Simulated assay, not measured.
Amino acid sequence: MDQIKTLLEKIRFEAERASFPLDTPIYQAAGKIPTEPVLYAGNLNSKICFFGRDLGRDEVAKGQPLIGSAGTMVRKGFYQGIYHQEATSPEDLQAICDRALLTNTVPYKPPGNKAYSVKVKERFRPFIEQLLVIHWGGTQIVTLGTEAFKWFTPYAPKEEIETFWKRSDRYEVQMRVTLEAVDFQKTKHQHQVSLLPLPHPSPLNKRYYAKFPEMLQHRLNELEF
């Protein structure tokens, strides 16, 4: 855990090095330091990672990813997949952290509900790479939404991500990519994973919102956990 502590310190140092869009009022309302990263929740030895876009109000307040309305839908679905019964308490929703890693493209909350720019994502990419490649032991990543899936573009042959994303069955098939990371000693690491994209479970996503629980269960049927 000393290495994770160092990683968190490095992220905070980078956040304090130069300004970038932060929803400061949300952090202040929650009594949180805006530059303190919310990098992940869950088990670094788990086989599955749920990979979202960025933090929301609830994630800032509770200090972990995927705990707002969309994240709760993911957690309930995963709980159902594991235990074959409905999650009925906050303890149930928290219990899934024993079986999965939860993280995002950027460990901060952007102002409003707008995604971070490519520039900000690239600025924090090395730290997310370290988390997924060096510290996490799993090989299956369920991406939530377009922004989360396309974060993995650099790890696939040119145009392959876009070609995959245009497939009508993209939410039913998997894609293999090899992630790369450089640690703080400049040593390079690689880690092969399978991407299993799903739409983002937001009420604004009218096309897929009602279908998401069933789509998630189909994905879980493909996974080892």
Results as ranks from 00 to 15, higher is better:
L66S: 12
P65G: 11
R75C: 03
I82R: 13
Q94C: 06
L66D: 11
S46W: 08
F78N: 08
S89N: 02
K76M: 06
G63Q: 07
P90R: 10
P65Q: 07
F51I: 13
A95I: 06
H84C: 10
E59C: 01
F50V: 08
E91Q: 12
Y83R: 05
V74E: 06
D92G: 01
A87E: 13
Y79N: 06
R57Y: 14
G52S: 13
A70C: 04
L93N: 07
V60W: 04
E86P: 01
K76F: 02
I48A: 11
G63L: 05
I96E: 12
A87T: 13
T72D: 01
K76P: 00
G71A: 06
S69L: 08
E86R: 05
F51T: 14
I82D: 02
G63T: 04
F50W: 12
K62F: 09
G81H: 09
D58H: 10
C49W: 01
N45G: 09
S46Q: 11
I67L: 03
E59D: 15
D58F: 09
G63I: 07
D54Q: 14
F51E: 13
G63Y: 01
P90V: 12
A61G: 05
N45K: 10
H84R: 13
K62V: 04
I96R: 02
R75Y: 05
G56A: 07
K62G: 11
T88M: 05
S46A: 15
G77C: 08
S89M: 04
P90A: 09
P90Q: 10
F78R: 11
S89T: 13
E86C: 00
G68E: 14
F51W: 12
K62M: 01
E86F: 00
Q85T: 15
C49H: 05
M73P: 11
I96C: 08
G56L: 00
I67A: 02
Q80V: 02
L55Y: 11
S89I: 00
Y83G: 02
